[in-house]
Write a protein that binds this DNA or RNA. Structure first.
Lengths: 144, 144
DNA sequence: TTTTATGCAAAAGGTTTGCATCGTT
DNA sequence: AACGATGCAAACCTTTTGCATAAAA
């Protein structure tokens, strides 16, 4: 990941290194603030701006993906095609293997008369078991 | 649409009537501000708050859908299942018939061990022809 | 008459930006 | 040395909220 950044003319700094490590291993699709909190345990002086700027750089470099959510944008280091189950109560995002929902929508590279396709994201919206059973952890309150 | 609102215990007001008319006929997935501007041509005293509150009510009633986008939330009156092509340059959203991308992802009602499914949204991200040919109208500048 | 909706203004909250300084290359 | 990155603070923008008033039911 750090390699790909450098070849894009970007510089490697201690802050970026720690942020990259954190998002690379994250399995819960954290937002900028969560990443900030986690990295600050090691780098207390890290600023929120730097997190935003680094995430931007990583997205631009195609190394991570954005997931637009009601409260805040979240980030996904997994670039292999997969779907997302999104709980509308607690905001939890669960990766869904593309083969689970059979079959994967095969979108042509080019939609005639419309444009060319860069990526396909399938959002499966619902209510997770934990929430439907009442004990919503309110991981991070999700609006509407 | 107005019927469904009333049966939900909500009241019909001149503002709501005009807002509902506007979103019902909209084919371009407008955001709250665009709806405000359009309705104000007929109802100049309409406030932005009322648009937000009405859209919320319509979404809660299940009459329209939200589409989360970088700049602002957009709204879709078409409740029939379909996909969206989203231009990452100009932000244009084009409806894609579910049959065009063959086949439609058939997501089970219940994902074992995860939760139950309410809705599935397929976002096909790309660049529309107009933008790839250089004359981006910048319909509404889309960030990142 | 009771209760919900409207408008106004202010607040909230996530994200971006200007600027001086610091650190990579 | 040159230029990108960081931190701080302030700005931005969309969306939400408190409150008094107006208007549905």
């Amino acid at each position: 990941m750090t390699q790909a950044l450098k070849s894009g003319g970007l510089r490697m700094t201690p802050q970026r290194l720690e942020i990259i490590r954190e998002i690379a291993k994250a399995k819960d699709h954290p937002d900028a603030d969560v990443i900030l909190a986690r990295v600050r345990e090691r780098v207390p002086m890290l600023s929120r701006d730097t997190v935003y700027r680094t995430m931007d750089a990583l997205v631009d470099a195609g190394l991570i993906n954005k997931i637009l959510m009601p409260r805040a944008t979240r980030f996904d280091p997994d670039r292999l095609p997969h779907h997302h189950f999104i709980c509308e109560r607690c905001g939890k995002i669960v990766d869904i293997d593309a083969d689970t929902v059979s079959p994967l929508p095969s979108v042509p590279r080019m939609l005639d008369g419309i444009g060319d396709v860069r990526a396909v994201h399938v959002h499966i919206q619902g209510v997770c078991h934990r929430c439907s059973e009442g004990h919503t952890q309110d991981q991070k309150r999700a609006r509407s």
